[in-house]
Amino acid sequence: MILLQDNNGGALFNFIKDFWWLLILLFIIFSGLFTINQGYVGVVTMFGKYRRAARPGLNFKIPLLEQVMKKISVQNRSVEMEFQAVTIDQANVYFKSMLLYSVQNTDEETIKRVAFVFISDRDLMQALTRTIEGSIRAFVATKRQSEILGQRKEIVDYVKDQIDHTLEQWGYHLQDLQINDITFDKAIMDSMSKVVASNNLKAAAENEGQALLITKTKGAEAEGNAIKIAAEAEREAARLRGQGVALFRQEVARGMSEAAEQMKQANLDTNVILFSMWTEAVKNFAEYGRGNVIFLDGSADGMENTMRQIQALMVKHAGTSANGNDLVKN
């Protein structure tokens, strides 16, 4: 019985010992597993020396010997910058800009440079911003204050050309540089505003003068055309009035001639026609005089004198009509 107990105790001890060894082995194996998130690349070192780059997903490292020194983001990163520069004519220029950059690529050599060029991301940011600020200051120092506002694109192109090689040595690439705001000292801004305002006033005055000139010219042309049209209309109206008067006189003469002929055939005095015309004229004066006073000689001598004048006019008009008819016939 004692021997059986000793054998069972030894078997249990061996089982427990094997179990602990199995747990230790499993712990060592699982401690070598690690994951890298998408958008990052892990840097694996052994005894402080670079070994390899770990890609996104599940990875394995030698337990207790290898370690993941850092995880490098390969995504785009941005930073805002505010700084001052001085132009060649000693004007202070204030810039607000946004920098967009990223790791150049995920090649082995690039990841190695990115991992060991700078101690930390803070040092990278400081070096990157100071480099860009220095490039912009060098460009602005060769330009005048009046030239800066219109050269945003030239500034960006100059900076990219100057620092692309430097960033490549660091393992980074400048994606974009946007200059959002360019300002000057208040005194310069006020003077620039006055210049712009005066130029606008000058342009407005010139435009107003041109508009007034065009208005006057068009008005004169319109007035001339109106006068011309009115003159043409007046001439046509006068011609039509003359034709109407002539036709009226012809009809009156024809009617009077016919009336006189009929009265002769009836052995009546033709002066009755003249008397009728005179009385009709007096009637029209009374109806359409519009309050005007017309003095007529109503005596027998006055009436006889008026009759003689009317007869003379009719004889003259009859002779004129006869001559005109002869001319037409000829």
Rank of each mutant, 00 (worst) to 15 (best):
T110N: 15
T110L: 07
K112I: 02
R113F: 11
A115S: 00
F116L: 07
F116T: 10
F116G: 04
V117S: 03
F118G: 08
I119Y: 05
S120L: 00
S120P: 11
D121Q: 15
D123T: 09
Q126F: 13
Q126M: 14
L128A: 08
L128P: 10
R130P: 06
T131G: 11
I132N: 14
G134W: 00
S135H: 03
S135E: 04
I136F: 02
A138N: 13
A138P: 11
F139M: 02
K143I: 05
K143M: 09
E147L: 04
I148D: 05
I148R: 02
G150M: 01
Q151I: 08
Q151H: 14
K153N: 08
K153R: 11
E154R: 04
I155T: 02
V156N: 05
V156Q: 14
Y158S: 14
K160E: 00
D164K: 07
D164T: 11
T166Q: 10
L167Y: 03
E168K: 08
G171V: 04
Y172I: 05
Y172T: 02
Y172C: 02
H173I: 14
L174Q: 07
L177T: 07
L177S: 05
Q178Y: 13
I188D: 04
M189C: 07
D190I: 15
M192N: 10
M192W: 04
S193H: 14
S193D: 12
V196E: 09
V196P: 00
A197F: 13
S198C: 07
N199F: 12
N199R: 09
N199S: 09
L201D: 05
L201M: 08
K202S: 12
A203L: 02
A204P: 03
A205S: 10
N207K: 12
N207I: 09
Q210L: 10
L213Q: 07
